[in-house]
């Protein structure tokens, strides 16, 4: 029996990811994500005791830039792709506690 996520689990993850899903998407993802999770079980065959996780593709270390100010973008360019501005700031609906 393949794993199915419950609609509540799907909705919880969708909320974490801030995605509004249609009921059809909730149903699809419940089974598709479940199938993927089943597929991932294959990894449990692998003994990873004492294996260092590989977060980076290359072993680059200690990359710094010097503390030098570079020119910023003109405000007009900073705001030019924003859906809503007042010419000075990005505008968003009134923020309530808890975001």
């Amino acid at each position: 029996m393949p794993t199915q996520l419950t609609p509540a689990e799907v909705q919880h993850v969708a909320m974490l990811a801030r995605l509004k899903l249609t009921p059809a998407e909730v149903a699809d993802f419940a089974s598709q994500l479940g199938r993927m999770l089943d597929y991932f079980q294959v990894l449990n065959e692998v003994d990873t005791e004492d294996v260092e996780p590989m977060s980076y593709a290359v072993e680059v270390r200690n990359v710094f830039r010097e503390d030098v100010v570079q020119p910023s973008l003109p405000r007009a360019e900073a705001l030019m792709n924003a859906p809503k501005t007042d010419g000075q700031c990005f505008l968003v609906p009134q923020i309530l506690d808890g975001g």
Binding site: A78, K84, D86, Q88, C89, F90, L91, V92, P93, Q94, I95
Partner: peptide, 14 residues
């Protein structure tokens, strides 16, 4: 957010 102005939007400054 300008409470007094009765505006519906908040401003974001980065």
């Amino acid at each position: 957010h300008d409470e007094s102005g009765g505006k519906t939007d908040s401003q974001v400054d980065l």
